[in-house]
Amino acid sequence: MDALIAEFPRFVGGFLGTLRLCLFAAIGALILGTVLAAFRVSPVPPLRFVGQAWVTVFRNSPLVVTLFIFAFGLPQVGIVFPTFGGNAFFWPGVAGLICYTAAFVCEAVRSGINSVPPGQAEAARAVGLTFQQTLGTVVLPQAFRTVVPPLGSVIIAMIKNSAIVGAFGVTGELFSVDAGNTALGYSALSSLTGVAIAYLVITIPAGIALGVIERKIEVKR
């Protein structure tokens, strides 16, 4: 485990790099995914189509292919992303991860809205609440509770998927830490064990926290 001890600062740097990448991607994916979910429940057919098509396309194609299209396909059409700290793959990577994850966020949010029993909204309307009141005080608070656990799983999966963006060539991220270690002649075993531990440090506590939140806000029906 020589690399782990000697190159500890490098791991910390990669750890922070991954968190930064995931922060951008999570914010983007949550916003885009919620908008797409709104499209999918909206009464306007073309918007429903867009939401449906987005989910079908991105959920069924590998993230690697999405990233390739963002990084190598789009520049062919004149869409060139700015570099980030000298790295040309950062923004295409983040954009690809956002588009991919948004499809899963959309599904989680949509199933959350659908999981509120129709009787709830019907009863709210029956006692004379307006549409805004129905949505704001009856449906959304309940939808939020059912949405949080799957949404958490989606974000944890996204953090794991960020490794693919790293493998793709984003430097200063956990996956790329290994390349630096290999260049210095450390064994793959020690270097990759360090990388693996760093991911577990993020995903396992996140999973436990999610479980706690899930139990706290669970709706008994």
């Binding site: 794991k160 490794a163 493998a167």
Partner: peptide
């Protein structure tokens, strides 16, 4: 829990 917490790209690379 250990294997579930790892990115699959890491297990393949490993």
């Amino acid at each position: 829990e250990l294997l579930r917490g790892l990115p699959v790209v890491i297990t393949i690379y490993f």
